[in-house]
Write a protein that binds this DNA or RNA. Structure first.
Length: 575
DNA sequence: GCCGTTTTCGGCCCGACTGTTTTCAGTCG
């Protein structure tokens, strides 16, 4: 049984328990375990098989959960889950996806009206039966009707790059709001997550009404969900929820810290605060005394974390993974920055499926401050992209040689994105690959093969003497295609052993490797290359998304190959 | 359900907003 399946089982168990009104902390224990297991790169079954290690060594896994995991791995099911599923139809859980409906109200709808699906819920609202339930009313009934449509959409998260577009236009919109002293965007956007569920906007102002009035006039706003004294929520025409919070300057740092999250990071932070007889909320840090609470800071994030003798964590690290342990051990790693990037080692031209000539791509890279670029067009197997056979590839490399002779302070490297064939093995002969400066190996076909097959293909590529890097190693397309079934732990170990590089593809729809796998690769000493996979000149702008993801994985400049100067890179490649 | 140089029991982050109450429960982040 795969880690994701175990995690899904625990999440489902948590949903069902919550629905039944179980102790919320017990529910949280299941959710924490699900998150931990999902983030693990190593298969749980491997830990179980290893006599040296115990599941209870994992934080948040006690005797009970360890036994349940063991049962799941051994039998493929969990009696407790089966029983709950027999008692509560799984479709009932979809009710929880309606904004405004939580476990209590959903349970009441189920027990009193026998509602099990969204369709039945809609019918009951339209018949006016919901308003008669205790705790419900006409307004609640109407809100449910209005929100049922979002039950499906609420699951969808938008790409970080899309959220960034909204952020830029909102910044512009706020720029002529005189009541506003400062605006910042928090939440998962600030943490640089690959996808964003909703947008959190933080404004410093003493005139919250004016700010909210101005906010409501933002052209994308389609409806106001809620509006209070300090907090307002709207939904945009595209269905994105934006939460606005207005705070005083002396609370700005505390509010920014709070709204940046993550929720789990905040839970840990506030737990630590309690141990010190402090309280942290969105208004500041308070010392708890017999006389009451005493404000001791909160204007900046430095004041909040400083009160705890903690460093100001880069937002990308605030996921309650390793950051608190790192802070205990010493200074945090200095994360890689966009300005550290010196070159791009994965790009296409109009020779295959790109929309820019060799010269246009090179100029675009140079304009962005890069000093080298590998042209890595597709190989012959990728016929839809007019992939290159040996003759065309060698001809392209000859053109690159002539082009390089005209350049100063910039170099185009002769590369290829060589397909890893379905049956295994590389799509181009060894004697051709041997002449390349940089070889990306990647899978395009046979993505639905078994875990053993896919993993073996990639391991072969890693062992191939002329392969430099594995490009988009898991093949995921965010919101569109799952990663292929690959043993990423084995891939990372092999890359470490054979000193091969793994790509972090910066395309905002890929971001593959993801943050967790980047961290796992780093822990094994595997170098990462952040590449845009640009198919047109503007594609080089994607580098920032890749850097954000790398930062989330805790990568430093030294961990990223293309922060090196060209001479350093060539030395590393022994070219 | 987890966890422990303040605890093996009794904690577990904290507050805003809404709608339904007549002082608060539920939901959300």
């Amino acid at each position: 049984m795969k880690n994701t399946q175990i995690a899904d089982s625990f999440d489902q168990l948590a949903d069902l328990l919550e629905f039944q009104g179980a102790n919320p902390f017990r529910v949280r224990a299941y959710r924490n375990a699900a998150r931990l297991i999902r983030d693990l790169t190593e298969p749980i079954a491997g830990i179980l098989a290893d006599g040296q290690r115990k599941l209870t060594d994992l934080p948040g896994i006690g005797q009970d959960l360890a036994a349940k995991i063991e049962t799941l791995v051994e039998t493929g099911e969990l009696p407790q889950l089966s029983e709950l599923l027999a008692a509560v139809p799984p479709s009932v859980l979809t009710l929880l996806r309606v904004p405004g409906l939580g476990p209590k109200k959903a349970a009441l709808l189920h027990s009193m009206l026998g509602i099990t699906t969204l369709e039945e819920l809609q019918a009951a609202c339209e018949a006016g039966r919901v308003r008669e339930l205790k705790g419900f009313g006409a307004k609640t009934e109407q809100a449910i009707l209005d929100n049922i449509q979002f039950a499906v959409k609420a699951q969808e998260r938008i790409y970080w790059a899309e959220a960034d577009f909204v952020v830029e236009s909102l910044r512009e919109h706020f720029s002529d709001c005189s009541a506003m002293e400062r605006v910042e965007f928090a939440g998962s956007y600030r943490r640089g997550r690959d996808t964003i569920g909703d947008l959190d906007v933080l404004v410093v102002s003493t005139e919250s009404d004016q700010v909210m009035d101005h906010f409501e006039k933002f052209s994308s706003v389609s409806e106001v969900i809620a509006r209070g004294d300090t907090k307002m929520s709207v939904r945009t025409l595209e269905g994105l929820q934006i939460d606005l919070r207005v705070v005083e300057a002396k609370s700005f740092g505390a509010a920014l810290q709070y709204f940046t999250g993550s929720k789990d990071h905040n839970v840990v932070l506030r737990g630590l605060a309690r141990q010190r007889n402090l309280k942290i909320n969105e208004y500041g840090v308070f010392r708890l005394t017999d006389e009451g609470e005493q404000y001791i800071g909160g204007a900046t994030e430095e004041e909040v974390y400083g009160a705890m003798d903690l460093p100001v964590f880069p937002p990308e690290l605030r996921e309650a993974r390793q950051e608190f342990a790192w802070a205990e051990q010493g200074p945090l790693p200095k994360l890689v920055e966009l300005s550290d990037i010196r070159g791009d080692l994965h790009a296409h031209t109009d020779e295959t499926d790109g929309r820019g000539s060799l010269r246009e791509m090179a100029e675009a890279a140079q304009q962005r401050g890069l000093s080298y670029l590998a042209i890595t067009d597709h190989s012959q197997r990728v016929s839809m992209a007019q992939g290159l056979n040996p003759e065309r590839l060698l001809a392209q490399w000859a053109r690159i040689d002539r082009f390089n002779a005209t350049l100063t302070n910039f170099r185009v490297l002769k590369g290829i994105e060589c397909d890893i064939l379905e049956r295994g093995g590389m799509d181009l002969p060894d004697d051709v690959l041997a002449q390349a400066d940089w070889v990306n190996a990647s899978i395009h076909y046979g993505q639905r093969q078994s875990r053993a097959q896919i993993t073996e293909r990639i391991l072969q590529a890693i062992e191939h003497p002329h392969v430099t890097a594995i490009a988009h190693p898991t093949g995921r397309l965010i919101n569109r295609r799952e990663a292929y079934d690959v043993d990423i732990d084995a891939v990372i170990k092999a890359a470490a052993q054979h000193r091969k590089i793994l790509e972090l593809n910066a395309n905002p729809q890929r971001l593959d490797l993801n943050d967790i796998y980047c961290a796992a690769a780093k822990s094994q000493g595997v170098l990462i290359v952040i590449s845009t996979d640009a198919h047109e000149p503007a594609g080089f702008d994607d580098m920032r998304y890749g850097v954000l993801q790398a930062r989330r994985g805790g990568l430093t400049k030294a961990d990223v190959v293309n922060t090196r100067s060209l001479p350093q890179l060539l030395k590393l490649l022994k070219k």
